[in-house]
Design a protein around this nucleic acid. Structure first.
Lengths: 220, 220
DNA sequence: ACAAAAGTGTTAGTTGTACACCCATGG
DNA sequence: CCATGGGTGTACAACTAACACTTTTGT
């Protein structure tokens, strides 16, 4: 019984949420696109393995967040010896361009190529998890730049969550929760003019739940 | 490399949330209390294995809900050959008393005995997950009876979530979300008198998220 | 001057909590 | 007729979505 790790690595690129995939050269399912990953090593746990695989195979170093998703354990999920897959969600900040091997490419999640085995399901799971956590945690820190304008952050939320987001309300929510902090600095306006935008940063760069109990919260 | 399944099975018993544990007779860690589970079979996936183990070893048949928690993969989490543990949360409805082997017993989660290996961590994870899901899903269906009064349901929430819950508001929330439905019937009052309580049932008996987006919800 | 982009403010609606009050029943 | 406990209603606070208006800047 084998054990592999699969990571759905997301990054925002050109106003699209993208996922990192590599194209299989050999059978089975040659030509289809796979998630990065590989066999679990003898003396590492799953998160360590995921980090190592990404560093080794696709030169991804700047992983800002990594979390476990579910385990895929169908005895016949892949041909050959039985292999259990532990899947992960990985996030990379936006202005960063890791060096990729030639068979590896970023694909917009809205337009995926044919994926290998059950990897398409994994990607959908990961995307749902990301969208959900954007609304009650500070997880966006792992996709954003160190410093950013509100409109950049709005674009990030918009493409990651899949629908329009109001900049004003987004700022209100994130500031009240203490998720973002103004730096005091401003960014120069674009070439079309406009008010110089204030710069913000995420207060923390570790996952934190910011809206734990929507209802049935404990009494004060 | 071995792969085992561990299940934290919860039930409300006597106004206490309880978890099912069995006491190890042999080394290692003899005398400590363990979660039910065992090795993953060659031709079953993880949920099937969890269900089978419970049915075989502790005669638990009425599992109303089962979901995956995280995987414990520390190479040295247990002595002997390396064993990866996939953990699950299992729920059993309240008026039900499965036949248990002599070494197996229900333990209130507020007063756990000494647990084996990392099983204590698993129990805490499971409990947190349950408490969280009570507030945004209909997961309580798996702990409640077929029909119940609001005060019975309030007691269930109170002991599962760990703090007082207002009956009136609980009913309002759950009815608005369509989680519970009145049956029209009433229960006779207790021996001290009082208004006969209305009976309700859960609208669905499959997990459903009822409060997906607390904020940043999609436009109508 | 004008358009673009960001800041400011307001309104209205929803949701949840806390709490007071009313009513049916058994002793 | 009273205590008990469930039902009904209201007041209040918190939050959010939607959107109009104002201000600064580059062309």
């Amino acid at each position: 019984m084998q054990h592999e790790v699969l990571v759905a690595v997301f990054q925002k690129r050109d106003d699209e949420l993208c996922v990192l995939l590599w194209q299989r050269a050999l059978a089975p399912e040659s030509g289809t696109w796979s998630l990065p990953g590989g066999a679990l090593g003898a003396d590492e746990d799953l998160p360590a393995s995921a980090t190592r695989q990404l560093a080794e195979k696709v030169d991804v170093q700047e992983l800002a967040h990594l979390e476990q998703l579910s385990v895929f354990s169908d005895p016949h999920r892949v041909p050959g010896p039985r292999t259990i897959a532990s899947t992960f969600l990985g996030l990379i900040p936006s202005p960063s361009d890791p060096h990729l091997p030639p068979d590896t490419r970023w694909h917009p999640v809205s337009d995926l190529p044919q994926t290998s085995f059950d990897h398409g399901v994994v990607i959908r799971h990961a995307r749902r998890r990301l969208a959900a956590k954007l609304s009650y945690t500070n997880i966006a820190f792992a996709l954003a730049a160190d410093e950013f304008t509100m409109s950049a952050l709005r674009d990030l939320y918009t493409c990651a969550i899949g629908h329009a987001v109001d900049t004003t309300n987004l700022q209100r929510i994130l500031r009240r929760r203490g998720v973002i902090t103004p730096t005091g600095k401003t960014a120069p306006p674009g070439r079309a003019g406009g008010w110089p935008a204030a710069l913000f940063r995420f207060t923390e760069s570790r996952l934190r739940v910011t809206d734990e109990f929507a209802v049935l919260r404990p009494p004060v």
